[in-house]
Design a protein around this nucleic acid. Structure first.
Lengths: 201, 201, 201, 201
DNA sequence: GATGAATGAGTTTTCATTCAT
DNA sequence: TATGAATGAAAACTCATTCAT
């Protein structure tokens, strides 16, 4: 058919694997993993089933890729905030707000994340959980740093605070409305503020 | 084969519909709605497919019943707290902690709730969302009452606070560990405390 | 399992499982196991795929049933001959000829047997081999009985003789021609004669 | 990428077609023709699919080559024995034993032969059968020569004797155990002996 | 000579639901 | 009330083969 350099792109010029991943992400978010058939994905991506299985070992693999991408992104951003030189309070506030903004910017990935994790094969599930844990621990370390410095209350254990905050963030795809009164950044600031206020000594 | 003559119970004495509902709840929570076949449900309940379709119109109906049950329960408990005569601070703290405890006590229902909602048919989905909204609004009213009374900070809009708290609660099935260091009640108190501290003026 | 009455028959009055088994046997023999699709089987049997999977767990199961049937049949016939009261020479000759006749009468089963065994799942393969071994051992016992009695030569180990004879018999489906000059019984007598002559002291 | 310039070998120095044939033979014997994918073959041979289709027209072609090789080999060896100058009894015994030894030495080819013949396309199947017939006829001629000379019994038609012997030989891959008590040559001698004893007048 | 991305028809299997009994 | 045989549509995945490079 249409051929550009190594027929890996076609039509809009986006490489086939990316096209597949984008289509899968959207459909998984809209309908759920189980309700989305491989046939729908390849049709949405404009390729055939054979092509999909040329690049991905299974439907499950596709889901895993979605996870890997969002995990990588969020870890990078958290690291950037955590490694900053501002006072701990500002760094935590920045990170807490940022995860809200990027979650909203990638709401599809987020809704897949918290709804479809159990569809991953056991090994992949384990792998994702491990990366997720690493992320949480980095965040917890920030809180503990503040607690040791006496800036944050020690009344609630740091890991509970982390679970509390991320529980809400993961649920954003359920309750966030793009047409709401707040911009993503404003919403993020509100939630970060809520967190910081709860941590006041 | 076995003649039962005019009774819907059998074996352990529990009525068939309840047995079906209990089996479905457990399996939906363990494997997800789509991954659970009607065959598995009837086998777990010790009845036949015909029996299931005698009591429930469809597999979807079964899911809806699970929702209806948990919604009814939580609304009742919230109403009880909200209608109390204690000061607003105590009533909110009680309700916020109670929803954590009952969520942990019905963790299967909870995990089905936040993971399988999109499997409901559009009408049922709408119905569930409506009841859910009613629940949230009652909770929000508590917060607003406290804000008007000057006991809670008004910096964060009440509905945002509600979403923040329930986001975490709905996610409990993801991060709650029965073998953790805290009892359900202790955990509930911690989370309620976190909420209340965030609301300090 | 085996159920007549009920709607298990249809059209020609033969129960559905039998119809499926007959169709599968013919097709496996004609085309091989791998070359025969489940679709072809159900079409030949005049039922739907769902019906096949209602009675058989898998395509593999169908193959196993074919084996089980022929193994059962042959073991019964061998036992009948071996348990006879004639002199050992006559009993061996009778058994050796009979297995040829019944193999010709069930040539489809036979060709499936020696060509498709490796398609069985490991456990089923093991099971079939075990039954097969039992059959061979019974036959070998006859030869050894004659050797001990001094009627048969002891120059060739009995198990080798068994393998030699059954090798040929299993290959009948390759070289037997229904339109050849000999009737099945005549052919069987010739082969039994060949075996007995090789065993002359 | 890697420029190889005018040589069909690579790595271990064996030409690509041979490498493919060897890999295919092993895999066909282990898993059967249908269960072996072209992908597996090229991976085992360390080449790509394009290379395979460069040398062979189809997967079927590969199977045919396996047959051609073994047929050629066996015909040559039979001819050598038949053309000898020893007495007919010795020549038949030699040929009968030799086919057992070479079959054991090429057990993979043998098991493919008797199990996968029906996978060949009709023309190739016809061709193979024709060569096979030629082989059988040469063997039969030896028996008839002995019968005319009065050295072998004429009670059993020569072609039946041929089928009887080769039936067993073709089945060797089913019952031969490399760790059995007999060496290939000893086993071959035993079977040849069995044949010759059956032919005693 | 050789690559490997892409095809498309094919495979086995699953499953919610119906209905005659 | 309850059964379970049967349906039929859809699912995920495989694979021999082609062809632009």
């Amino acid at each position: 058919m249409a051929a550009v350099a190594r027929t890996t792109t076609d039509g809009d010029g986006t490489p086939v694997p990316q096209r597949l991943l984008a289509a899968a992400t959207r459909l998984f978010a809209e309908q759920g993993y189980d309700r989305t058939s491989v046939q729908e994905i390849v049709e949405a991506a404009g390729v055939t089933k054979g092509a999909l299985y040329h690049y991905f070992g299974s439907k499950d693999d596709l889901l895993h890729e979605v996870y890997a991408r969002v995990l990588r992104l969020q870890q990078e951003r958290l690291d950037a905030f955590a490694d900053g030189s501002e006072p701990i309070e500002q760094r935590l506030r920045g990170a807490a707000a940022d995860v809200v903004v990027t979650t909203i910017e990638n709401l599809d990935d987020a809704s897949i994340f918290f709804r479809s994790m159990h569809h991953l094969s056991p090994e992949k599930n384990k792998q994702v959980r491990a990366e997720r844990r690493r992320y949480h621990e980095r965040f917890r370390a920030l809180i503990e740093e503040g607690q040791k410095a006496g800036v944050f209350s020690t009344e609630t254990p740091a890991d509970l605070v982390v679970d509390y905050h991320f529980g809400s963030v993961h649920h954003l795809s359920t309750w966030y409305r793009p047409d709401g009164p707040l911009t993503p950044q404003q919403l993020a600031d509100q939630l970060a503020d809520l967190l910081l206020r709860a941590l006041r000594p």
